[in-house]
Design a protein around this nucleic acid. Structure first.
Ligand code: MN
Ligand code: MN
Ligand code: MN
Ligand code: MN
Lengths: 224, 224
DNA sequence: AAAAATGTTATGGTTGACCTTATTATTTCA
DNA sequence: TGAAATAATAAGGTCAACCATAACATTTTT
């Protein structure tokens, strides 16, 4: 077992596919998230297809194979374990841990991954609220809906933040939109305009493309 | 300040030069340590020269510039801090930490380096006995001589192990040739033959190319 | 002072992961 | 049902870091 070691680029493609929902992801969306041109993403997807990691149905999208899904889960595991370490032990700012862990993930041997997990007490959730796959790649897929879909008047609890850009994460951090936060939608502007939110007693504006990456649950009546 | 980010390859060349003594290192030796051909090392050294990181005097050797020395010290800092973490906190086998830390070192942002150092309590020595440069690149160059130069009858204390191959480190670990160990040279075979040592009451044979990487100090009479 | 060994440079390749600028195919929408 | 938008391919490059083989230069040894 244990593949001959994947390149950083390969791992990032697989991880991005997993983060984007791992079925029928358009190459354009993938390219955008990875910051490459669609042509480049297309080439790379062809290579990944040849290695049996993804299946590409032209005009439909890219889907991880079982092999690809496992590899992607392993990257997510490393990423999120490092996030826990950076946040809990090194006390690094929440908004920065994604990017910093994203470098470390590719340099982490299986032995280090497992020792790190043990050191951290086998956490199952990262500081951004996302589940950490276990050593076999299994994890409970995140429940909840995107904040983007919420209507005015609804009050929700933030479960996870799926954004990856440090800039976006900084904005969310400043506004207090972190896992566990209670958020009320005051207004959803028309024409795909921004949401106006109430977070921790303060108002915050949030564009839909950012709201998309905030995963929430309807707040069940659990006392105030 | 802070360079535009060096490639892993660049960092490894600089680190190897620092480990090999950082003045007048022959390209052949460098190539050997890095596992590339002399021609490849030559090309790379030309590139590093263009970037002002090394100076190459043909037929004399390669020497780090001040800029190169600083960059190399920073790589060593990251490498050795990770070694401490892997050994002390993740409880990874001594012989494996060099190689595992050697991957992590290139993926470690300055912010992580400094937070890690603080987390570890700003250690000044790694588990292999080598000094850890401070944030400015300063460190006490290792005192002591190579075990290779010792004559029969001498008793020495191991200060550091400069080997990098996991295989070699495993051998040394098995024989107990670790920092702090008391070693007596029983015999130095002629014709560059192996040393016979007494370590922890047991005999061990050690070829000169391995002994070269074991840095020792004459044991000062400090009790029996 | 040759010869041998060692070190350097020249040439020409490869590979992965990018790029741009067409061109062509498909889907979606007016 | 056509036109527009979107997606895919083709074609030709770049760049870093490797490789091998061969020619040439210097140093070391005999
Ligand atoms: Mn990454
Ligand atoms: Mn390394
Ligand atoms: Mn060339
Ligand atoms: Mn081509």
């Amino acid at each position: 077992m244990s593949l001959p070691h994947m390149s950083e680029s390969t791992e990032m493609y697989l991880k991005a596919l997993a983060e984007l929902g791992d079925r029928d992801v358009s190459i354009a969306r993938l390219a955008e998230r990875l910051g490459v041109t669609p042509v480049s993403a297309n080439e790379m997807i062809r290579r990944l297809g040849e290695q049996g990691l993804v299946a590409h149905m032209p005009y439909k999208g890219v889907t991880l194979t079982e092999k690809g899904r496992e590899a992607a889960a392993n990257v997510l595991r490393r990423q999120r374990l490092w996030e826990v370490f950076l946040y809990e032990h090194l006390k690094i700012e929440w908004a920065k841990i994604y990017e910093l862990a994203c470098s470390l993930e590719h340099a982490t041997a299986p032995e280090v991954t497992e020792a790190l997990a043990a050191f951290l007490g086998n956490p199952t959730v990262c500081p951004r609220g996302n589940p950490i796959p276990d050593a076999n790649g299994a994890f409970a897929p995140l429940e909840g809906r995107s904040l983007r879909e919420m209507a005015a008047g609804e009050t929700v609890t933030v479960r996870a933040v799926n954004a990856t850009s440090t800039e976006v994460l900084k904005y969310l951090q400043e506004k207090g939109i972190l896992p566990g936060a209670r958020v009320t939608v005051i207004e959803a502007a028309p024409l795909d305009g921004p949401l106006t939110l109430l977070v921790n007693g303060r108002e915050a504006a949030l564009g839909l493309s950012m709201a998309e990456f905030v995963i929430v649950e309807k707040t069940v009546n659990e006392g105030r």
